[in-house]
Write a protein that binds this DNA or RNA. Structure first.
Lengths: 221, 221
DNA sequence: GTCTATATTGCGATAGAC
DNA sequence: GTCTATCGCAATATAGAC
């Protein structure tokens, strides 16, 4: 365990730098400088830059998914196997949003790293994304229990929109902040989560407009 | 005009490749190979890789904003200066979504390029983003006319969520497609736009939960 | 396990002939 | 304007001493 200090220092430094600046802009030299270890140590411990990124991603992905499922399990147990829609959605978007917007810096690095990973297309990561689909199916199933009678398509769109709003909120909070001149308070993490959950729940429960209204005559340009 | 063929070929090839693979993974050598021009031509016509990207971004940014504003102007004129919320939102998200999901490949390259540009942090682009804020203020103003009495903060969050959903839908349509086993039809562009517009409109018009409901007691982990 | 030193590759950019 | 050839640099990765 004592010789893991170098390895751990590399992982922590890499996660922080990748979260801040993305994969393309961070070199192994940047990482070893931040971790105060030798350049060769990275290849010794991880084999290559891509394998380092993959290890980070897999570790964090498992942790995030577990956190989400724990919350889901808790709210479903509290409701006798059927949780309110809001609680299911909060279990989905809460961990990431609290991680990115909250004060804990190491959680923040981890969450922001995951956002980067979901955006920048590292080949190894694309493969792992299949697991994310399976993970989301568990939330689809929970929503089916919460909303019996709702079409599956609506549930998928609801999950999609919930993740879209959560993701964008943590990824580009600056635009919202500047647009609103600071009036939209992103330090209020629970408030932001509640907004995302509320809108996603509306998407899932509000009556749908008729099909005719979905494709209005397109205006000329 | 005839000597612009090289320049134009570079721009088109660069836009397509950047749209497909992102800025970091596409080299000037990739671009000149696709455009079937000489390597030195890029630096002759544009000065540097960053200036090439900037030129593409500025051009497309202006075009997208003009398209959005034209649609906004049309729907506001049709309503005597006050357009329905749905129409304002459709003017905002329609151009990008039609561009990315629609069949026209050149429009698709352009729209997907813009998505890339909004994600990957090229310094020159970050500067231009200030203009995007000003652009969004026009839509905030239109929504204020559509929804008198709605708090500004709600309008900003509504715009934020509308863009988030539109953006994610075109950026990661694959996840939704796989999650739904193809049941969520993204070839129905107008249907997808209607869904985004509908949910964003709900976010803007539905009554808000009380403040107490926004910060429920956090469950232990 | 950790270091120094280096091999190797590929990048953006440029000089200079045509 | 377009080409060939090449510079200078920074990247990942590795070999081999300790």
């Amino acid at each position: 365990m004592s010789t893991d200090t170098t390895r751990t220092a590399i992982l922590r430094a890499a996660e922080r730098l990748y979260a801040e600046r993305g994969f393309g802009d961070v070199t192994l030299r940047d990482i070893v400088a931040a971790a105060e270890v030798n350049l060769a140590a990275v290849n010794y411990h991880f084999g290559s830059k891509d394998e380092l990124i993959t290890e980070l991603f897999v570790t964090r992905s498992i942790a995030t998914n577990r956190e989400r499922l724990n919350e889901l399990k808790a709210v479903e147990a509290a409701g006798g196997g059927r949780a309110p829609v809001d609680d299911v959605l909060r279990a989905l978007v809460g961990p990431t949003m609290r991680g990115c917007l909250g004060p804990d810096s190491q959680r923040s690095d981890a969450a922001r790293f995951m956002i980067r990973a979901s955006i920048e297309a590292i080949p190894a990561i694309r493969k792992i994304k299949t697991r994310e689909i399976d993970h989301l199916r568990k939330f689809a199933a929970a929503l089916r229990r919460s909303l019996p009678g709702t079409a599956d398509v609506e549930i998928y769109w609801g999950l999609h929109f919930a993740l879209a709003m959560a993701h964008q909120t943590v990824r580009d909070s600056e635009r919202l902040l500047r647009l609103s001149d600071g009036a939209c308070d992103l330090n209020d993490v629970d408030g932001a989560i509640a907004r995302v959950v509320n809108v996603a729940a509306l998407a899932l429960t509000a009556p749908k407009p008729s099909a005719a209204a979905k494709a209005p005559a397109r205006r000329e340009r």
